[in-house]
Simulated scan of single mutants.
Amino acid sequence: MRRTTSTLLALLAAATFALSGCTDPADKPTEPEPPAETPTGTTTPAQEQSVTMTDAWVRATEAPMTGVFGTLTSTAEEDLVLVAATSASAGFVELHEVVGDETGERVMQEKDGGFVVPAGGTHVLEPGADHIMLMDLDQALEPGQDVVLILTFDDGTSIEVTAQVRSSAAEEEDYVGGHGHGADEDAMPSGEDAQG
């Protein structure tokens, strides 16, 4: 009886060993693959940026609006258009141009279609011309502060720009607000208070 029991146990052990060796590897549980990393922001990594902004600065102000200036430079093979901008420092942001009206007066207005940055070229934003306008500021901007903006282009890419607040003379800024600038035209300040 002992011999039979021992024989049965040996056969059972051998069968278990044989079955474990024949298991299909595909039947084994696999470790789940880690989820693919997804972008955490809307900005394009520096090495992939086709447009950069250099010498970015903001005019210091105590008014509820001010201008952002600098030089946009493109390394793209096709023209790109700056179509929008945002900043946590402002209630909203607009792209502005300064043009002469029928009376010859210089008028600031929202730029339809945005700013074209030519392929391999530059587009300058400067006082009295094309500029980015920070609107509905909730506090004064003092020299030395930084303002962060996100600039979005027509190809869907965005870049983050840090612009330093600087004091600057505004004698060339004698224009007034025009149609389509997003503020009440009669309330739009002219001259130094326009800050654009």
Rank of each mutant, 00 (worst) to 15 (best):
T122Y: 02
T122P: 10
H123K: 09
V124T: 10
V124Y: 00
L125H: 00
E126R: 05
E126D: 01
E126C: 02
P127H: 01
P127Q: 07
P127C: 03
A129L: 08
A129G: 08
A129C: 07
D130G: 10
H131G: 01
I132M: 13
I132D: 11
I132C: 13
M133S: 11
L134H: 12
L134T: 08
L134G: 06
L134W: 11
M135V: 14
D136V: 04
D136A: 14
D136L: 09
L137C: 00
L137Y: 00
L137E: 06
D138L: 12
Q139W: 00
Q139R: 13
A140I: 04
L141E: 13
L141Q: 14
E142V: 14
E142I: 10
E142Q: 07
P143S: 05
P143C: 07
P143L: 13
P143A: 03
P143Q: 02
G144R: 11
G144Q: 11
G144Y: 13
G144I: 03
G144L: 03
Q145P: 06
Q145T: 04
Q145Y: 02
Q145C: 05
D146W: 06
V147P: 12
V147I: 07
V147G: 06
V148G: 12
V148I: 02
L149M: 11
L149V: 10
L149K: 02
L149W: 07
L149N: 10
L149D: 02
I150Q: 14
I150A: 10
L151Y: 06
L151R: 09
L151P: 10
L151H: 06
